[in-house]
Nucleic acid binder design. Structure first.
Length: 598
RNA sequence: GGUUCCGUAGCUCAGCUGGAUAGAGCAACAGCCUUCUAAGCUGUGGGUCCCAGGUUCGAAUCCUGGCGGAAUCACCA
């Protein structure tokens, strides 16, 4: 039993003894003692003052005295106003340190066997454009949330849903056919996703030219001109051919998609994310259509005169939603219905997490309602992890204005910055080229990941390029640096000494800094539990930053290896070691590596 | 207009299911390397927690109403 629970139940017993009534659950509030007061845990007595019919001071005094008597871990208490501060024994704290010292997975819960998995969908790119900063937030969140769930004992399936069909794909195909002269990634040396993206841009610019010409010559409006533009008509024609499985069109589609996937894979690999299964919209939209038609038969959906199929959501104060166009083709929602079904069939998950931007809140509301109306058992298992947009100092990213921050370019810049700063500090003597390369990558990506993940997912965030390459203060490299520092000390101590060090923990005392650090370490498992239940990597990021700060203060104030009293020195080694493990484990939850030297 | 989310120091962000005097980083200024990695540590200044009511012993946190910002309400995805 955790000490907090033990104390709560003891307090509950004390109150029952005094009043004859057991206090209701939740009445007894226990929390960490604020740093400026003496003590480790604090019981807020206000909620129970009424039960005892005495002043807060008297209640605190009475309960405090009884707790010292009854709970062996409680050593002493002090009461300030309505707050009962309890100090736990040194033995308790040192016991905690000793128990967890050998645990490489400190903080992680063991996997629960045979439990239904959680499916986490993230990334979900379109195959006509390279990945950008917005995708980076998505990928980092999805990956980290998966790690978080795994570390809390769940089995997790990471899935990616690739949007590989539709008119936008046809646009880049068409441009390539018309203007490409057979260009390939090999012939041009371009990354596959970039090459295809270039043709999408080319399509748009050619189209704009045609639209302008039509508006000029016919005096048409822009919308009308777009519909009439030959390129647009050709693209639609291509889409029809694709849906009819035209041989040549399918061949080009497959070829261009394979280029894109090669490019994406390179980006994913560098970003350090991966998937257990990849779904393709081209495989799921037909299933979605079948489900909708089935719903039509069951009269859950209805058909309009023009043959389009809709669902009535007025009961939920939502507008009617189109599910099949009048020509029988599918829309995004239809496809997502199919994907949800497929995913359920594949994994029978307890929960399906969708990491998708908050611009699609409405979409997921509707999806859940539609599935519910269809009587799908997994409707309530759907959870939309809705995250905010990434904005730049001068506003939003707009592809038209060329303000989109490309994922590959951004990673390049972070790594280059890491190399520059590392070079300035001159700490890589003895590193070979391979090690240097790994270090720059680790620091650069660490900075980027931490910068993005430390912000509460649901909030919009500002990506300031200048701040993102600052490696001081509340940053990934600061935490990595703290880890490297500890490793340096542990290396100097040597493994023999580390193995024997825990032997002293029975008879040493802790100073304030040591105890503060130990208490921070104690918080990790609980923080992880909360972060997992809230699906919030930010909780971990903020925790590990706090821990690193705590360690640096300790490191500054307390000499570890130069401490003359070897028992104290050994105890500090133990503290340092558990801190290193905790930093490493916490950072791993964010998908961030930690270097042993930097 | 309807719905949802956000509003905390000059800037970027924390603040856990309501709890003690609201915290970090950046930026500014002042200190600390002959001693375990100074990507560090310490100090100073900086706040009507958007506003107004309400609930409560207690509200940045919960409720209501404003104000400001964002997203969304497509036979786009």
């Amino acid at each position: 039993m955790k000490i907090e629970e033990k104390i709560i139940s003891a307090v509950s017993g004390i109150i029952k003894r005094l009043t004859g009534v057991e206090p209701e659950a939740g009445k007894i509030v226990i929390q960490k003692t604020r740093k400026d007061f003496r003590g480790d845990l604090t019981i807020v007595v206000f909620p129970i003052v009424k039960l005892l019919k005495r002043s807060p001071e008297e209640v605190a005094e009475t309960i405090g005295r009884a707790l010292v008597e009854e709970v062996e871990e409680v050593e002493e208490f002090n009461a300030v106003k309505g707050f009962l501060n309890l100090s736990l024994t040194e033995r308790y704290w040192l016991g905690f340190l000793e128990e967890n010292l050998k645990d490489d997975k400190f903080g992680y819960m063991p996997a629960k066997p045979n439990s239904a998995p959680v499916v986490v969908e993230y990334s979900s790119p379109n195959t006509n454009k390279p990945l950008h900063l917005g995708h980076i937030r998505n990928n980092l969140l999805g990956y980290s949330v998966s790690r978080l769930l795994e570390a809390s004992g769940k089995s997790v399936k990471k899935v990616n849903l690739v949007n590989d069909r539709g008119i936008h794909i046809c646009k880049s195909m068409l441009a390539w056919i018309k203007y490409g002269n057979g260009e390939t990634p090999e012939s041009s040396g371009k990354k596959g996703d970039k090459l295809v993206g270039d043709y999408y841009v080319r399509f748009e610019s050619e189209l704009r030219r045609q639209v302008a010409a039509i508006m000029e010559s016919e005096g048409a409006g822009e919308d009308e001109a777009r519909k009439k533009a030959p390129l647009m008509l050709e693209a639609q024609d291509l889409l029809r051919k694709w849906e009819a499985r035209d041989g040549e069109v399918t061949r080009i589609w497959k070829m261009m998609n394979s280029w894109v996937y090669e490019g994406f894979d390179a980006t994913y690999k560098r970003l350090g994310v991966d998937f257990d299964k990849i779904y393709y919209e081209s495989d799921t939209y037909l299933l979605g259509r079948d489900i909708v038609l089935e719903g039509l038969e069951k009269r859950v959906m209805f058909k309009k005169e023009d043959n389009s199929v809709w669902v009535d959501l007025s009961a939920y104060k939502l507008d009617d939603k189109l599910l099949l166009r009048s020509d029988g083709t599918s829309v995004y929602m239809t496809q997502d219905i199919g994907t949800a079904q497929l995913r359920y069939d594949d994994f029978e998950p307890e929960k399906m997490v969708y990491v998708v931007g908050n611009e699609q809140n409405h979409h997921f509301n509707v999806l859940r309602r539609v599935l519910k109306k269809l009587g799908k058992p997994y409707a309530d298992a759907i959870y939309h992890l809705s995250y905010g947009m990434v904005e730049l100092p001068d506003g939003k990213m707009k592809s038209r204005e060329g303000t989109v921050v490309d994922a590959d370019d951004l990673m390049d810049e972070m790594v280059t910055t890491a190399e520059r700063i590392t070079g300035e500090l001159g700490k890589t003597s003895g590193f070979d080229n391979e090690e240097k390369k790994w270090l720059y990558h680790t620091i650069g990506l660490g900075a980027l990941k931490y910068f993005i993940l430390k912000v509460d997912p649901k909030k919009n965030m500002l990506f300031n390029p200048e701040e993102s390459v600052d490696f001081n203060g509340n940053t990934g490299p600061f935490i990595q640096y703290t880890y490297a520092r500890i490793c340096s000390v542990l290396r100097k101590a040597g493994s023999d000494r580390l193995d024997n060090a825990p032997g002293v923990l029975k008879d040493v005392t802790l100073n304030e800094k040591e105890k503060q650090l130990l208490k921070s370490l104690y918080d990790f498992p609980e923080t992880l539990r909360e972060a997992a239940s809230e699906l919030s990597p930010a909780r971990i990021a903020n925790y590990v930053y706090e821990l690193a700060r705590e360690f640096n203060q300790f490191y500054h104030d307390c000499s570890i290896l130069n401490e003359p009293d070897t028992r104290i020195s050994d105890m500090r080694l133990c503290l340092s070691r558990l801190t290193a493990v905790t930093i490493r484990n916490a950072m791993a939850l964010l998908g961030i590596d930690v270097p042993e030297r930097m």
